[in-house]
Amino acid sequence: MFDDINDLYQQVILDHCKQPRNFHELPQCSCSAQGFNPLCGDNLKLFLTLDGDVIKDAGFTGSGCCISKASASLLTDNVKGKTKAEAEQMFERVRDLVTTGKTTGDVGKLAVFAGVYKYPARVKCAILAWHALIGALRGEAAPVSTENEKT
């Protein structure tokens, strides 16, 4: 019945939503930020451990839909080992990807989110964790809400 929807719920996404990676707090983290999507109630907290400019470890907690959880899970895998600047660049690529289906440069496994743009109501779910990432890196104290953003 749901053949068409596999472009949204790719196997990798289903896998990460059922078994999220790095799904825990980082008690010794350097920074963290909360991401909140008031429409769905998705609520994630992202933790980063930095070594100088490099993200050494990443983790998250919270609850949300399949897309937002999988996105957070894949994010934590993706940003480990990246510099702050590289992580910000990845955010921009992912944002382009989930809003237009296209992006410049390599996004690795995150390419599974290429179908999200066809489901406008779900773009916020896919981008939530990435907004929290930017919030954490920039040291924003207030929870990041998808309602304040264009995406």
Partner: peptide
């Protein structure tokens, strides 16, 4: 299964 996934499907 989150309600939003239910609605999308």
């Amino acid at each position: 299964v989150h309600a939003h996934d239910v609605v999308t499907l």
